[in-house]
């Protein structure tokens, strides 16, 4: 079934927080509603759940791959052509550290860029219900749900004191 989104705009933080409470009371799940702001409010300002992300995994995986690559290049080269330099062991960390560091960095950077693009879900092709007032300073609460439930959502948004008409859009 096609999903539709509705958006209520608020001028006060408390009203937006009330709207979230009303939506939860009306049976809407986390993930069905979202807050839209033009400013990064501290997490939990509106009583919303803290969003989860897995961005930290990408640089860690990339760094592990890059480090392994750097280790294989440096250790492999030195084992292939063993040369004792300055009485140090064949596999000495200081000369290997440069390539291993750069390998680690390159792996981490490449994976992070991929991770940012993937995790951010950008570009967002369908913006759903949206208002330019968000970037002006209004706080938006948007609900994306089945078409039959949009009435309930609109009711919950209005009850919290949404300013003006509820904005509708397709997701």
């Amino acid at each position: 079934m096609a999903k539709k989104s509705v958006l209520g705009l608020y001028t006060e933080e408390d009203s937006a927080a009330d709207a979230l409470d009303n939506l939860r009371d009306a049976g809407f799940e986390e993930g069905e509603y979202e807050l839209l702001t033009g400013t990064p409010y501290p997490e939990g300002t509106f009583g919303e759940a803290e969003p989860e992300h897995h961005l930290f995994r990408w640089p860690l995986i990339g760094a592990a791959c890059g480090f392994t690559g750097g280790l294989i290049i440096t250790a492999g080269t030195q084992m292939a052509y063993p040369l004792i330099t300055g009485g140090k062991p064949i596999l000495s960390i200081p000369p290997m550290a440069i390539i291993m560091y750069e390998g680690t960095m390159l792996g981490a950077i490449i994976f992070t860029i991929i991770g940012i693009i993937f995790e951010s879900r950008l570009p967002r092709l369908f913006m759903g219900a949206y208002s330019e007032k968000i970037t002006e300073g209004h706080i938006g609460v948007t609900v994306t749900t089945e078409e039959g439930r949009t009435g309930v959502a609109e009711e919950a948004l209005k009850k919290a004191g949404a300013e003006g008409d509820i904005i509708r859009g397709w997701e």
């Binding site: 033009g38 919303e48 961005l55 951010s120 967002r124």
Partner: peptide, 15 residues
């Protein structure tokens, strides 16, 4: 790229 300022987007932005 369709930035609308969801809590999730801001959280990602920070990280």
């Amino acid at each position: 790229l369709g930035w609308i300022g969801t809590t999730r987007q801001w959280n990602w932005q920070y990280h």
